[in-house]
């Protein structure tokens, strides 16, 4: 018994250390964002929210934040819509080349962001769409569709195949069945996809850096700041970005977990308890 406990304790410590290692840079940045001293050093120069104040007062940062929000929300909406459509075609139809279609749909995040960014820049400037906010939106849509699609596809996979047919059988046209049955069933995954796509866009800088021109987003602004000077403002902005995108990811997780288990069990073939 005793050795079993020791092993458990050792494993838990190991896990805690591993997590600490992963999050150490972020924690450090978070701690020094409240440091009164300009240069990060040990020991701390005292608690201060000065850098947050400076960061928020910087018009470039404010503009970047504003841009980031517009890009994140717009691209998440578009990516989720396209992701749903892609997942639904996969769920509903069988056709020649379906595997190739799925592989292509899931491809973008596997391409190094630098390459994707460069390619996007070349392409968008050819068609006269580069250097503006909509350029970033287009790129982030392409980049986050696979995340949205994967989440929605997972949820559709849990849907009883008879459910949609049952709606048709009760007089719902294909369009009505989609609206009244498929959409409500996948709603948790759709919301999760929205938040995840927002999170992906919110802290993506590489592609945005290539295509943004003068309409830079917050992550791009951080990069610019770092290139010019080492200001603790960066710590403050970084912490803010981290908190926002973590919140979005957590919300996405909660959406998925909240409604899924009871619904999956609703139509499984199970033995009646005979209470009726």
């Amino acid at each position: 018994m005793m050795s079993g406990r020791l092993v458990t304790l050792a494993l838990r410590t190991y896990l805690a250390l591993a997590l600490l290692l992963v999050f150490a840079p972020i924690i450090t940045s978070f701690i020094y964002s409240f440091d009164a001293d300009k240069y990060a050093a040990f020991p701390w120069g005292g608690f201060s929210t000065r850098w947050y104040g400076e960061a928020l007062a910087d018009p470039d940062v404010a503009k970047g934040f504003h841009n980031t929000i517009i890009v994140a929300v717009t691209s998440a909406l578009i990516a989720t819509a396209i992701g749903f459509a892609t997942a639904y075609t996969d769920y509903r139809y069988r056709f020649f080349g379906k595997n190739a279609y799925l592989a292509l749909a899931l491809l973008p995040p596997t391409i190094p962001a630098i390459i994707l960014g460069l390619a996007m820049l070349v392409f968008l400037s050819r068609v006269g769409l580069s250097g503006a906010l909509h350029s970033i939106i287009i790129c982030h849509v392409v980049y986050s569709i696979p995340f949205a699609m994967a989440l929605i596809r997972l949820r559709l996979g849990q849907m009883d195949r008879d459910l949609e047919a049952a709606a048709w059988n009760l007089g719902a046209s294909e369009w009505h069945a989609l609206r009244e049955v498929v959409l409500p069933f996948t709603l948790p995954a759709i919301l999760a996809a929205l938040f995840l796509a927002m999170a992906v866009s919110f802290d993506e800088y590489a592609i945005a850096w290539f295509v943004s021109g003068f309409s830079e987003t917050l992550p791009v602004r951080i990069l610019m700041l770092l290139q010019r000077e080492v200001s603790p403002k960066v710590n403050a902005i970084g912490s803010l970005v981290f908190i926002v995108s973590m919140t979005l990811v957590l919300v996405a997780q909660v959406m998925l977990v909240m409604r899924a288990p009871s619904q999956a069990a609703a139509n499984g073939p199970r033995q009646g308890a005979g209470r009726g």
Binding site: D160, Q263, N267
Partner: peptide, 8 residues
């Protein structure tokens, strides 16, 4: 057979 009731 699966009843296909709408779970939501």
């Amino acid at each position: 057979q699966s009843l296909a009731l709408f779970p939501f």
